[in-house]
Design a protein around this nucleic acid. Sequence first.
DNA 1: CAACGTGTACTAGTCTATCGACACACTATG
DNA 2: CATAGTGTGTCGATAGACTAGTACACGTTG
Lengths: 136, 136
Amino acid sequence: MIFRLNPSSGIPLYLQLMEQVKHSVETGALREGDQLPTIRRLAEDLVMNPNTVVRAYRELEHEGVVKLKHGSGAFIKESASGRARLIHKAQTVIQSTVERLLSLGLTEDELRRAFENELAQTRSSRRSKALTEGKP
Amino acid sequence: MIFRLNPSSGIPLYLQLMEQVKHSVETGALREGDQLPTIRRLAEDLVMNPNTVVRAYRELEHEGVVKLKHGSGAFIKESASGRARLIHKAQTVIQSTVERLLSLGLTEDELRRAFENELAQTRSSRRSKALTEGKP
DNA sequence: CAACGTGTACTAGTCTATCGACACACTATG
DNA sequence: CATAGTGTGTCGATAGACTAGTACACGTTG
């Protein structure tokens, strides 16, 4: 449950914190129902403003990873572990694909771009498919 | 050779322009040696500042897609088509992987995150591998 | 029911990315 | 060799993201 952030990495602190929480859930270090550190407590430990921790926690709540309870604290949501396992499986598939494409000679940036293009492409086709099937 | 940008999409104009140029190369609409529109001409057509076109062109040059010739114009680089074909092949592989993972129930954001994680992971292992093999 | 600990809300400062205005330097062309 | 058309460079304005400071509201606990 020790989070370590890098203030000079260029990556926003609240994003780094979100990453670490998600990662802890995926590795099982944090389980359903576990309480996260208090906002103030964590802010003090990491030497940053409580609002930055709030930002991270609130976005994690928005993503369905944690549940904030006014007056009590922040807790790992029920469904979080299941999704974590799903994502962990996906990681294997992604790994082999990425390795294959990199070995073909693609640069990391080219790979990222092709991936984003594919998401955009698939997104629009999913939309039209949902429409024809009557699932808005 | 008609580029169409969306000023209110939240995506920077110079990035949108870069995308369109790259896409044109990948589809074959732009071939090796072809001249791109003049900076001022394109800026006028797209109703934006010449500097924004410059930004796009310069980054494309940095990526090896185009070659800027002082006094003459901007041209598609020699090696660009070859890379475009490579990327086009990669797109097929990526497509099947993305579709498979989406059908497993992953959200787009989860997929994106897992992908970025994989890149970071692979990046660090590539680094250490290069070191042990003496290829800095 | 009081007091402490929790998350919440509002406001403001700072920094960076993006885009724009304008003057400079090179090159083809007649 | 002049001129028009090309890319190059410098500077500034603006908007948005990120972080911080401070006061408020709810809930648990004795």
